[in-house]
């Protein structure tokens, strides 16, 4: 039997593939234009906007900033992946959500020692899906325990 924790959500950012445990995902919102308030931002915390979600405003984090990834998708056209955090829900902006896959489709892949320094602080695991590297997205690196009002 497949349970939620055994599945991964695959999303794209700047053409790169990322995977996320489905157990951390609350919802995927594809139409965000009318629910955004970019005036409520805190760039120092990586928060680029606020998003109205289920009658409350939640922080929106754009991981492309921290990852230094160039995305051609404008903010209003992005997809928000709503994640469950220690301080409540928050939204992760991604270029697109690809699909859900069972965890057993992925193959472990070590980060070469020559690239470990470059990866440090941004990601610590990579898995292969059909021979394509997928970065294991670690939400706590992008939005964490610090309480941020929006």
């Amino acid at each position: 039997m497949t349970v939620v924790g055994d599945r991964k959500l695959i999303f794209r950012l700047g053409g790169m593939g990322f995977l996320l445990d489905l157990s951390e995902v609350v919802e995927v919102v594809t139409q965000i234009t009318d629910s955004l308030d970019p005036g409520r931002s805190d760039i120092g915390q990586g928060i680029v906007s606020a998003l109205q979600f289920r009658q409350t405003w939640i922080p929106v984090v754009d991981p492309a900033l921290k990852l230094d990834v160039e995305s051609t998708v404008k903010m209003r056209d992005k997809t928000a992946v709503i994640l469950r955090g220690t301080e409540g829900n928050w939204a992760l902006l991604v270029d697109q959500v690809d699909k859900l896959m069972a965890a057993d489709n992925f193959q472990s892949c070590a980060i070469p020692s020559l690239l470990k320094v470059a990866a440090m602080g941004f990601y610590s695991q990579i898995q292969l899906l059909h021979n394509e590297p997928m970065i294991v997205f670690e939400p706590e690196r992008y939005y964490g325990s610090a309480v941020v009002s929006v």
Partner: peptide, 25 residues
């Protein structure tokens, strides 16, 4: 072969490729 980009690759590393289940800069 297919080249893949990763975040924060060093400036002289153009991409990575996958060979035998391993990443190669």
């Amino acid at each position: 072969s297919t080249d893949y980009s990763l975040p924060h690759l060093p400036g002289a590393v153009a991409a990575v490729l996958v060979d035998g289940g391993e990443l190669v800069p």
